[in-house]
C-alpha cells in the first residue's frame, strides 16, 4: 500500500518534468515557419553577401574568384574612404542634436499640461511620415531662389543659404532633415524612461531643499542613463544607415559632397552593377556599424557599473 503510493508518487513526479520537456520541444513548431522565412530573407542574404564579396561579379557578366582583391581595392578607394568620413560627420551631428532635443522634449512631455496628448502626437508625426514624401517637400523648401526657407532667413536678417546646392552646406542641411525626422524616436524612448523613474529620490531632494536644476542633474540624469544609452545606440545605428532622404534630396551630390557609405554602396551595386565590389562594401559597412554598436554597449556596461 505504502510502496504503491510512493511508486505512483515517483511516477507522477517523473512524468511532470518529462511532459514539460516535451512542451519545450513542441514550442519549436511555433518558431519553425518564421525561422524558414528569416533564413530565406535575412540569413541567406548575409551568407551570400560574404560569398559574393570574394568574387568579381558583374551583373549580366561573368563572375570569378578574386579572393580579397575587392577589400584590397576598397582600402585604396579614395571615394570610399571619403564616404566613411562623411558618414561619420553626418552621424555625429545626427546623433548629438536629436539626443539633446529629444531629452528636452521628453522632459516637456513628461509634465502635465493642457493638450499634451495632441502636442505629443503632432511631435511624433515626422517619424511616421513617409520619408520620400517629406524629402520632396524639403527639396522644394531648399530651392535657393524660390524656397520658403531662404525667405524665412531673410525675414530675420540672415543671408540666404545654398542649402543642399553647395558642398559645404549640404551635409548640415541633410542633418537638419534627419533631426526633424528622428528626434521623436529619441523622445519616446526617454519618455518611457522618465515614466519608470521612482518618485522617492525627488521627495527626499525636495525636503533637503534642492533646486529643480540640481534634482535634474543629480537624480534624473543618472537614473535616466540606461535609457540615454539605448537611445544613443539606436540613433547611431539609424544615422549610419540613413538613405532615403539623402538619396531623394541630393543623390549624393553636389558632385560627391553628400555621398555617404550607403549612397556609395547603392551606386556601386545598382548604378555601376559591380555586385562583388558592392558586397565587400556591405561587409565593411556592417563591420563599422557593429564596431560602433559594441563601443556604445561597452559604454552602457560602464554606465551600469558606475
Amino acid at each position: 500500500m505504502d510502496s504503491a503510493a510512493s511508486l505512483a508518487g515517483t511516477a507522477a513526479a517523473g512524468a511532470i518534468p518529462r511532459r514539460r520537456r516535451n512542451y519545450a520541444r513542441q514550442y519549436w513548431w511555433f518558431v519553425v515557419p518564421c525561422g524558414a522565412v528569416v533564413i530565406a530573407t535575412i540569413i541567406f542574404p548575409w551568407v551570400f553577401t560574404l560569398y559574393m564579396s570574394v568574387h568579381e561579379w558583374k551583373l549580366g557578366g561573368g563572375r570569378s574568384w578574386v579572393g580579397f582583391a575587392n577589400y584590397a581595392k576598397l582600402v585604396e578607394d579614395e571615394r570610399f574612404l571619403l564616404s566613411i568620413l562623411r558618414t561619420l560627420y553626418f552621424t555625429a551631428l545626427s546623433v548629438l542634436i536629436p539626443m539633446v532635443l529629444g531629452l528636452l522634449a521628453a522632459l516637456a512631455f513628461h509634465r502635465k499640461f493642457p493638450l499634451r496628448g495632441l502636442a505629443r502626437t503632432v511631435f511624433i508625426l515626422p517619424m511616421m511620415a513617409t520619408p520620400v514624401a517629406v524629402a520632396l517637400v524639403w527639396t522644394m523648401m531648399f530651392h535657393p531662389q524660390l524656397g520658403v526657407l531662404n525667405w524665412l532667413l531673410q525675414q530675420v536678417g540672415i543671408p540666404p543659404s545654398m542649402w543642399v546646392y553647395a558642398a559645404d552646406t549640404v551635409i548640415p542641411t541633410l542633418v537638419m532633415v534627419e533631426v526633424w525626422h528622428w528626434t521623436p524616436l529619441v523622445m519616446l524612448i526617454l519618455l518611457g524612461g522618465l515614466a519608470s523613474l521612482p518618485i522617492d529620490p525627488y521627495e527626499a531632494a525636495k525636503i533637503d531643499g534642492a533646486t529643480p536644476l540640481q534634482a535634474f542633474w543629480h537624480i534624473t540624469l543618472p537614473l535616466l542613463a540606461p535609457f540615454l544609452v539605448v537611445a544613443l545606440i539606436i540613433r547611431t545605428i539609424d544615422a549610419l544607415k540613413a538613405f532615403d532622404t539623402i538619396y531623394v534630396i541630393t543623390q549624393g551630390g553636389p558632385g560627391t559632397a553628400s555621398e555617404t557609405i550607403n549612397i556609395f554602396l547603392y551606386l556601386q551595386a545598382f548604378a555601376y552593377y559591380n555586385l562583388g565590389y558592392a558586397s565587400a562594401v556591405v561587409v565593411v559597412f556592417f563591420a563599422i556599424i557593429i564596431a560602433l554598436a559594441m563601443v556604445l554597449l561597452w559604454t552602457r556596461a560602464r554606465v551600469k557599473d558606475a
Binding site: W46, L240, F270, V282
Partner: peptide, 20 residues
C-alpha cells in the same frame, strides 16, 4: 538574430535577393 536584422542596412539585403 532579430536584433542584428534590425542593425543591418536594408540595402545589404538587396544585392543577393535581387540576384535570387
Amino acid at each position: 538574430v532579430i536584433l542584428i536584422a534590425r542593425i543591418t542596412p536594408g540595402l545589404s539585403y538587396l544585392i543577393p535577393l535581387f540576384l535570387l
